[in-house]
């Protein structure tokens, strides 16, 4: 199957610091790709360069087969929906209106219908009329996920969609994204929880210092060697009755 999104040999700087040093990424429809790596590995930068939000010094990003720089805003929005890491909202709009912002291409009435359906899907239909700033962080995250789903894009890119969520909401978020993939979308998520990545993603991309350290099925990509060299962890993925978990301890000891 042809990739809907590819990034090849990405090199990029933030200020003077090299944050991407030749990283690549590719995702096909029906697949959930997890991007993991320590803080500062370049996960967000990789997504942003791939979406055309950040300039590439070298390399190329293609969406739907076309260089991302050649797409106009409407074409790009038809191809990809993006949930940024930043969840701060400027105004206290009702949840329904926020979710409807995912569908600016539809007439207002239809956008609200789509928004209502997506709020239901993420389990906050009863909060449709509540102001998003009057909600808990978890509720707001669900509304923003509903906004992402309302884009109906064939590629969904979510930057740390589960940060700060309780365990149930984390699993729900990834289940919903998996359901989108099952329905034919390509999904890319960045995650810090390696266990969650291992059990929820079809493929895992491990970034380290702006380079791809490993890529493949979770069990292969998150090998003990990678855990040690990239994450400084002494551990392994373990198969349990409810899925994969990571058992690990820090490799470096606290110096006193």
């Amino acid at each position: 199957m042809t990739a809907v999104w590819t990034i090849e040999g990405a090199k990029a700087r933030r200020g003077k610091v090299l944050v991407l040093d030749g990283a690549s990424l590719g995702v096909v429809p029906g697949q959930v790709l997890g991007v993991v790596g320590p803080n500062g590995a370049g996960k967000t930068s990789l997504l942003r360069t791939g979406l055309g939000l950040m300039p590439l010094e070298m390399g190329q990003a293609r969406l739907g087969g076309r260089p991302v720089g050649d797409l106009n805003p409407v074409e790009r929005a038809c191809l990809v929906g993006y949930l940024p890491q930043e969840r701060r909202l400027a105004w206290n709009l009702p949840a329904l209106d926020v979710a409807a912002l995912g569908a600016p291409d539809l007439p207002p009435g239809e956008a609200l219908t789509v928004a209502r359906e997506r709020l239901e899907r993420v389990g906050v239909a009863d909060l449709a009329d509540r102001g998003v700033l009057d909600m808990s962080g978890g509720e707001r995250a669900r509304v923003l996920l509903a906004r992402l789903l309302a884009t109906r894009a064939p590629l969904l890119v979510a930057d740390e969609p589960v940060a700060g969520l309780d365990p149930d909401a984390q699993l729900l978020t990834l289940d919903l994204l998996r359901a989108e993939a099952a329905a034919g979308a390509a999904v890319v998520v960045t995650l810090h929880d390696l266990g969650l990545a291992a059990r929820s993603c079809d493929r895992v991309l491990v970034l380290d210092h702006g380079r791809v350290a490993a890529e493949g099925a979770p069990i292969d990509a998150l090998s003990p060697e990678v855990l040690a060299s990239v994450f400084k962890l002494d551990g392994a993925l373990i198969e349990t009755s409810t899925g994969l978990v990571v058992a690990a301890r820090r490799l470096t000891t606290l110096s006193r």
Partner: peptide
């Protein structure tokens, strides 16, 4: 309302 990047996308 969603922030600069989400608006841009």
């Amino acid at each position: 309302t969603l922030g600069e990047e989400a608006a841009q996308m």
